[in-house]
Design a protein around this nucleic acid. Structure first.
Lengths: 103, 103
DNA sequence: TTGTAGTTTAGCTATATTGCTAAATAGCGT
DNA sequence: ACGCTATTTAGCAATATAGCTAAACTACAA
């Protein structure tokens, strides 16, 4: 599947967007994430794998647990790339644009 | 449904993203859009209604036809709003941020 | 009013998505 | 090796999505 589709499909689900919000505070183990929802652990696990597949989060194992971490740069660049192609006039990614012009 | 879900679900489909690209060149009638795809007219019509429901395009009738127009500000602000909440550090919407600080 | 072009709505099928529970896997302490 | 905790994988049911064709609707022109 195309990267943009993976990204937007991943972001299309409210539970997954909430997971991203929760990860703003720093990395969390899968179980702690699951505990914040009324959804079963396995279902959250699947949401996490979709977020990971879209490169919006990363995971690392620490002993028993698997810690998930937000990847804000990835999220920002994925959305920024799309914006830059579909509405370059309104393009928000000013830093990158300047960098590309050598500033 | 929540606005963010409508936005991201609308953007999750590759055909709909391509329609947005096609509308970069200016407004187009539904038939002209449909002609650019190997998908049936009714299917494109549905895609257009989803894009409209997400406020990513607007429509206006002109005689026989219905012209669709890209709404780049809406797209940019929808994605910008999400970015600003999920990864404020990487936030790209510098113009708005500056405006809010009175610059 | 009848016809025709442009577009949407209705109804159908196939596939994808999301939730669940049960079972499998991974690491760690005993 | 055994048991315990943390997490994922497998398999199933319900709903949503995207495609199609046929039918309906809208505006215009004869």
């Amino acid at each position: 599947m195309k990267a943009a589709s993976r990204t937007f499909r991943a972001l299309a689900d409210p539970t997954r967007r909430q997971i991203l919000q929760d990860l703003k505070g720093g990395e969390l183990p899968a179980g702690e994430i699951a505990a914040r929802f009324s959804i079963s652990g396995p279902s959250i696990s699947r949401h996490l794998s979709i977020l990971k597949g879209a490169d919006l989060v990363s995971e690392r194992r620490v002993g028993n647990r698997i810690l998930y971490r937000l990847q804000p740069d990835r999220i920002a660049s994925a959305l920024g790339d799309f914006l830059s192609t579909v509405c370059p006039t309104q393009f928000l990614h000013r830093r990158k644009a300047k960098k590309e012009r050598g500033l």
